[in-house]
């Protein structure tokens, strides 16, 4: 637990360092309202998907299909819009479809006992494939401005983008669910020791199923955000985003083996990755540096606990 706390402190420290060097390096434009607005837009979808994914990973499972669910929901929006549906009906339908995608993942994992890594690599291809089947390689872009402006303008009177407001509300809900409810304690228990959790009366399968459904539904919401932000519904929206989200969650200190991690750390991880990317773009640094930095941060985040543990045991060994 102490290691974990230390990692979150380190993340916040890194965030402050990035913010300060950014502020100095860009002559004050990094922390300006306009730039923070774009930073917020840029991390919107990753922040959204990272929330349920954190719970999934804490429970010891993984969902690599989230970006494909995002793409499928984007494709469905375009398809249904072309079919003449009103957006008020499309959006709930798409979220239900996302939840169904999640439920399919969850049922394969819980009922058949298949490893979630393999299942969700399969549904990663399946859902992306369905998105392509639904919409092909066309793009639908004639959405009314009243919807697309949610993705491009801030909440009136503030500089906050709508996706961030949405992510913040969901973050509070997921935070309560994970850290302040018996449901959340069950999620930790399942991740720490699944058999132990089952023997203490936790309905392991049902909780895992709920987590996968949540991941699917929120990924669909992220798909809606993505579609309106670029005012373009395409089947290939968000390709490869799953690795960025998993990287953000793991960077936030969540253990890939489950049972450890906090939503706060994950949000710090998302902010850190988004802030770094934004800073590098502001300074005209090529994005490949960001790719390397993302990878290195990920390596450090897993190596740090291992190294501190080793140093700890060494210290104990020498009296």
């Amino acid at each position: 637990m102490r290691n974990l706390l230390r990692w979150e402190t380190a993340l916040v420290f890194l965030l402050v360092v990035v913010a300060l060097t950014g502020q100095v390096g860009t002559d004050g434009s990094f922390l300006s309202g306009g730039n923070l607005f774009y930073l917020g837009l840029d991390i919107g979808e990753i922040a959204l998907i990272a929330l349920p994914l954190t719970l999934v990973i804490v429970a010891g499972e993984i969902d690599l299909s989230v970006a494909s669910v995002l793409g499928l929901s984007s494709a469905l929006i375009g398809w249904l819009w072309n079919a003449g549906w009103p957006l008020e009906t499309i959006l709930p339908t798409v979220i239900v479809a996302g939840a169904l995608c999640g439920a399919f993942n969850g049922l394969l994992v819980t009922r058949l006992g298949l490893p979630s890594l393999a299942v969700t690599i399969g549904t990663l291809a399946l859902y992306r494939g369905l998105a392509l089947v639904v919409l092909g390689d066309t793009a639908v872009a004639d959405f009314p401005a009243s919807y697309t402006s949610f993705g491009t303008t801030p909440v009136p009177g503030t500089g906050i983008p709508y996706p961030i407001v949405l992510a913040a509300i969901l973050a509070v809900l997921f935070g309560i669910a994970l850290h302040a409810s018996s449901f959340g304690r069950s999620v930790y228990a399942i991740g720490a020791n699944e058999e132990g959790a089952r023997f203490s009366g936790i309905r392991v399968k049902r909780i895992k199923l709920i987590l996968f459904v949540l991941a699917g539904a929120v990924a669909a919401i992220a798909g809606i955000v993505y579609t309106f932000r670029f005012s373009s519904a395409r089947a290939d929206n968000g390709v490869g985003l799953e690795l960025a989200v998993v990287a953000a969650v793991l960077l936030g200190g969540v253990s890939i083996f489950g049972g450890k991690g906090s939503l706060f750390g994950v949000l710090a991880g998302v902010l850190l990755l988004g802030g770094l990317r934004n800073l590098l773009i502001l300074q005209d640094t090529s994005t490949e540096v960001l790719t390397i930095v993302t990878g290195l941060l990920l390596l450090v985040s897993v190596l740090a606990p291992s190294v501190t543990r080793r140093v700890g045991t060494l210290r104990k060994a020498t009296p």
Binding site: E288, V289, L290, T291, I292, G295, L296, L298, L299, V302
Partner: peptide, 14 residues
């Protein structure tokens, strides 16, 4: 899984 996800980014970045 985490290590090679990290090096996936590092090698591609290089």
């Amino acid at each position: 899984l985490v290590v090679t996800l990290g090096t996936l980014y590092v090698f591609r970045g290089i």
